[in-house]
Write a protein that binds this DNA or RNA. Structure first.
Length: 573
DNA sequence: GCCGTTTTCGGCCCGACTGTTTTCAGTCG
């Protein structure tokens, strides 16, 4: 069993225990453990081999024992026993909006309901209203909820599409009278790679008017709940949005709260309690009932003697401890980026010429741009033959002459890592290029051993400067290659090879946890858009967000370096 | 079930919204 399968098993255990009515804190412990496994970033079996399972936060003796059992025997007896006691269809009921474990247990024990279908017909036939706490409105909510569950996709949205939707709502709501400020919050602000619900926060003294305007937006399909401080809706495209409204003098605490993560907030509130302060979205309350309001978000952290924590790090994974004696001012920002190291043109599958891409880069204030079209074997992307590669070199020279000192254009290539582990161009060609990015596009499904070996071979080639989108994953569409990432980063650090964080929201590859691991191994990273169009340079902030989630300092990112330093590094290699 | 800069036992964040049981439980984030 791998990390994800074990996490899923613990999640299932928690759900079953909840329906069974077990003690809530036992259940939360399994949830926390599942969460910890998901965000681990390294193979849990490696930690197991080192005998360090209990060093994972949220994993104690009992859960470590269960992980051990799953690693050894590929199953968990505790789970199997629970599953045998509870009808399997009940888990599905938890997915219906507004239905939690208590209701599921009630439907099962008092109504004999064991599946979604049975629940739906019971609701339609009006049989649920006889149960205590249930009425006609609850029945209708269940019918609607099941309908919504069937139609909505189970996938979380790509960061980019959530971002676009948020921008639309923000620009609409900014026009509304009484809206002083509107900001994204939640996982969007934390730059998680996928987004479940969209969270937005408005500062206003007129909450009811703001909410009325919000639910009337053409984008809104239906209202799930509406109050003066919190309203949730479903948009026409199925995405769900939660909007909070708080007065400006409480904006800081409200934004901190709405940004999360839940784990981060819980930890923060526990620290507050030790200082006799109770923290909520409204601000701090002292024991005597007096309040401490936070207009700015930094006020929330300051009250606890903590440095302001960048949203990207608020996952409850040690960032609060760090904020007690350090700040995060060295974290990379969008402004730190000085150039783009991975861009395509019409020479292969890009949509703009070398000059058009260069002009766009100049417009964004970039100091340098690497043109890195695909290599010959990638026929589907019109990869360049050696002859065309040489012709391209001439055109780059001409464009450079035209643009003069406005930007440095480098000649690179995104060279295919072939399925046998060789590269698509011979060494004597590679050495003529200013910079070489090596990427996997094909044979991603080879065995872990095979793909890992391909990458290790590539890293050992002295002409390779950067590994592009390491795992080849496309979020929600294509699984990552199965790789021994630890071995790869170790080798990369030895050979001074740079790993790309591909900023395209479909890739975000390296992902945050891999980027963090690469940094731990001492690797340098790059934030590349892989632009196929001038507009794609705007993807940079997704890459920056991912790097920040990995706590990457600006210095650790190759393309924050001034051109002179980049040039020196390339020469020295 | 986990965890400890007051604890190895006794805690474990806090509030909004909904529907229903006229005072609150369940769900959600």
């Amino acid at each position: 069993m791998n990390n994800r399968e074990m996490a899923d098993t613990f999640e299932a255990v928690a759900n079953l225990m909840e329906i069974k009515g077990e003690a809530i804190y036992r259940i939360l412990a399994y949830r926390r453990a599942a969460e910890a496994l998901r965000g681990l970033g390294r193979d849990v079996s490696a930690i197991w081999e080192a005998g360090e399972l209990e060093d994972i936060p949220g994993v104690g003796k009992a859960i470590a024992g269960k992980i051990d059992e799953m690693i050894r025997s590929d199953r968990l007896e505790f789970y199997e026993k629970l599953a045998s006691e509870i009808p399997p269809g009940l888990i599905e009921l938890l997915k219906v909006d507004g239905i939690g474990p208590k209701k599921v247990a009630q439907f099962w024990k008092e109504g004999g309901i064991t599946s979604l279908e049975e629940l739906e017909s019971a609701a339609k036939e009006g049989k649920l209203r006889s149960l205590s706490g249930m009425g006609p409105k609850s029945e209708q909510k269940i019918i609607d909820g099941i309908q919504a569950l069937k139609s909505r996709s189970t996938e979380r949205s790509l960061l980019s599409s959530a971002w676009d939707t948020a921008q639309k709502i923000i620009s609409e709501m900014n026009k509304v009278k009484g809206v002083e400020r509107i900001e994204p919050a939640g996982s969007l602000r934390r730059y998680r790679e996928t987004i479940g619900d969209l969270d937005l926060l408005i500062a206003s003294d007129y909450p009811s008017q703001v909410m009325d305007t919000f639910v009337a937006l053409p984008l809104v399909e239906r209202v799930l709940g509406k109050g003066d401080t919190k309203t949730s809706v479903e948009l026409v495209d199925g995405m769900r949005v939660q909007l909070w409204v708080h007065p400006p003098e409480r904006f800081g605490s409200a934004w901190q709260f709405a940004t999360g993560s839940q784990a981060h907030n819980v930890q923060l509130r526990e620290i507050a309690l030790k200082k006799d302060l109770s923290l909520s979205e409204h601000g701090y309350k002292r024991d005597d009932g007096s309040e401490l309001l936070c207009r700015k978000e930094s006020d929330v952290y300051e009250a606890l003697d903590l440095a302001w924590i960048p949203p990207e790090l608020r996952e409850g994974k040690g960032e609060i401890a760090k904020a007690q004696n350090a700040d995060f001012s060295d974290l990379v920002t969008l402004n730190d980026l000085r150039g783009e190291l991975h861009a395509h043109t019409t020479w292969s599958d890009g949509k703009a010429s070398i000059e058009e891409m260069a002009q766009a880069a100049i417009g964004l204030g970039m100091e340098y741009l690497v043109i890195s079209d695909h290599s010959r074997s990638l026929g589907i992307a019109n990869g360049l033959s050696i002859e065309r590669l040489m012709e391209q070199r001439a055109e780059i020279g001409e464009v450079q002459k035209t643009l003069g000192k406005k930007i440095h254009i480098l000649h690179g290539s995104e060279v295919e890592i072939m399925s046998d582990g060789t590269l698509d161009f011979p060494d004597e060609i590679l050495e003529q290029l200013d910079i070489v990015i090596a990427s996997l596009h094909a044979s991603l499904k080879q065995s872990r051993k095979q793909v890992t070996l391909r990458l290790l071979n590539t890293i050992r080639n002295p002409h390779v400067d950067i590994i592009g989108h390491l795992t080849g994953r496309l979020i929600n569409r294509r699984d990552p290659a199965d790789l021994d990432v630890e071995a790869i980063f170790k080798e990369g650090a030895t050979h001074n090879v740079v790993f790309e964080i591909n900023a395209n929201a479909e890739r975000l590859d390296l992902k945050d946890s891999h980027a963090r691991m690469a940094l731990d191994f001492g690797c340098t990273l790059a934030i590349n858009t892989d632009a196929h169009h001038p507009d794609h340079f705007n993807f940079r902030h997704f890459g920056v967000g991912t790097a920040r989630r990995a706590a990457a300092p600006a210095q650790s990112i190759l393309n924050t370096w001034v051109f002179k330093d980049l040039e020196a590094w390339l020469k020295h290699r």
